[in-house]
Design a protein around this nucleic acid. Structure first.
Lengths: 136, 136
DNA sequence: TTGTTATCCTATCAAATTAGTAGGGTATTA
DNA sequence: TAATACCCTACTAATTTGATAGGATAACAA
């Protein structure tokens, strides 16, 4: 299942992506419009800011805004930050590879074989979609 | 992440799939060979039996065996039993569809759009792979 | 028939993860 | 200088996951 964190994060990015004006949008506005717990959303936006997707401004008139154009925000990067590794098992992960200590032979492992294909399929989707593609 | 249940279940199915002889294989043998907690594996095999993948025999010389040929065991079905719905959100699920009560417009929802593509990609993999494909 | 074997079944539990909350700190702006 | 809105840490509740315990039941064989 997709975590609420990822779901809310994607909704927030979309919300920011469709803004006409360039001024920051407040957490409270996004939370209200998208039916998200404000405090929970706050922590999600914070992590999106720390990972370089969002910029922020404090004080009155402050809020969050996209640092890049929606066309330049790849789902591969977004998903890795929000949901974690794209692979379902570490032994097929590109960025977080680990051997399974319980698996004597990776090459003959059925789980490994299947999950490799799943990883490739998911990766293809995420690489071929930017935030802009989700706003159409 | 892939659950241990699914991982162990796939390993057990593979183990049964490569058996030359047709006689039942005991839980203890599979657990030992595949490094799986025996009691946990027991519950997994039980659910695979209840869902029609495995047959079983009690008493001495008993154990589990595949009810179908590996070529006829689709990953779509296996994954649904072990891991649950293939879709990452209910609003794109074929078999377990539910509307998101927090989402006013499914057609314009970025999460929905992305997860539809992810579902299709995963489904394609699972539909095109049988247990036999994982044994090669 | 009786003992052994191995699955069947229910209940329970501990650990980990997830979702959400609380409360104050800090920078910015009017 | 007061109000605003992000920043940050810690905590808590609920859920899920992985694993155990202990006996009931069926099959086989001596």
């Amino acid at each position: 299942m997709l975590s609420k964190k990822t779901k809310y994060g994607l909704k927030a990015l979309s919300y920011l992506g469709v803004q006409k004006e360039k001024k920051p949008v407040q957490i409270s506005e996004i939370a209200e419009q998208e039916n998200i717990s404000q405090k929970f959303l706050e922590s999600i936006l914070l992590s999106l800011r720390k990972t370089g997707f969002l910029g922020s401004k404090k004080g009155k008139g402050g809020g969050y805004y996209l640092l890049k154009k929606p066309e330049d925000i790849l789902m591969t990067d977004v998903m890795r930050v929000l949901e974690g590794p794209i692979s379902m098992v570490p032994c097929v992960s590109l960025n977080f590879y680990e051997t399974c200590e319980d698996c004597p032979n990776e090459g003959e492992c059925a789980v490994h074989k299947l999950m490799l294909k799943v990883r490739d399929a998911n990766l293809a989707v995420y690489r071929n979609n930017t935030l802009a593609d989700l706003l159409k």
